[in-house]
Design a binder for these strands. Structure first.
Lengths: 148, 148
DNA sequence: AGATGTAGTCAAGTAGCTTGACCAAACAGG
DNA sequence: CCTGTTTGGTCAAGCTACTTGACTACATCT
């Protein structure tokens, strides 16, 4: 049957994210939504960002970004620090709880990959990763938004 | 790097859906949202459904489902017919415009697969499809929700 | 026939965004 | 320098796609 791969991609992706969501909730991270994860990932690789930068990355307005940061700060996932050179701006960085959450997601993803390797073999899984990389690269990887 | 496959799945899926969305809009289907596509797929394989059934399948309340059907009916994607045996119920079926949209999505997905086959080869693509199927089956394919 | 369940409706509330107006700090050019 | 423009963040109001809750009419079970 031709044309079913996109559907399978969606279902596989959804299955991973659903499981991660459930497992995180069991471990106490019961208040994280998809958009939060995408923000965490951005903050973890950049080390910090202003609300405006975060909004651009997430593809939402700065007002929405600020609101998201407010919520994450209230829940202890991020902290706001004064910007070193710009007195208007504040830098958002991951707090301990935010880092802990990121680490759990990384571990759960790795666990999923191990299960998948057991199902289809390490070589097939490597091929799958390479192929997906090729597709994403070919697509130009515009606004990535994994949108878990 | 271990654990990156889930991210690649998300990015690849997002890339397909983004392109389909843009192409559909160019072809006049500029008023379809992700949830609509999922409803179309359900209606096309079942041949019809009540608003309540549709809501259960989409994972939303019946009120939300009715609202969605109202909108799709107004835009000519679906029709409501009296239920043959239950005078309370009405059956929602795809209208011509709905079928046309479904056909375009199927064609665009097939086109994407051909492009991917050109990138990595037909055998690799077949392997990828089989492997994704295995993952989805292993996950138990709970509420599928491709959620484009 | 009566009790219970179900399809759909009506009404009100909510979450997560949006647009628009604004202020204060930053910055670029004469 | 000052002066005009850009930019980070805030305040306020509105919108959309949902939600919960109460209700009606028909269906179904006993």
């Amino acid at each position: 049957m031709s044309g079913e791969i996109p559907a399978l991609l969606g279902m596989a992706f959804h299955a991973v994210m659903e499981e991660v969501h459930v497992r995180l909730a069991e471990e106490g991270f019961d208040d994280v939504r998809p958009a939060h994860g995408f923000a965490f990932q951005y903050l973890s690789v950049r080390g910090g960002a202003t609300a405006v930068e975060l909004g651009e990355h997430l593809g939402v307005t700065k007002q929405a970004a600020v609101q998201l940061v407010d919520e994450l700060e209230r829940r202890g996932y991020v902290e706001r620090r004064p910007h070193p050179t710009d007195r208007r701006a504040r830098v958002v960085v991951l707090a301990a709880r935010g880092w802990a959450c990121v680490e759990r997601v990384v571990a759960l993803w790795a666990e999923t990959e191990r299960r998948w390797a057991a199902l289809v073999g390490a070589e097939r899984l490597t091929a799958l990763r390479d192929d997906l990389s090729a597709f994403v690269t070919a697509a130009g990887s515009p606004p990535i938004r994994p949108l878990w």
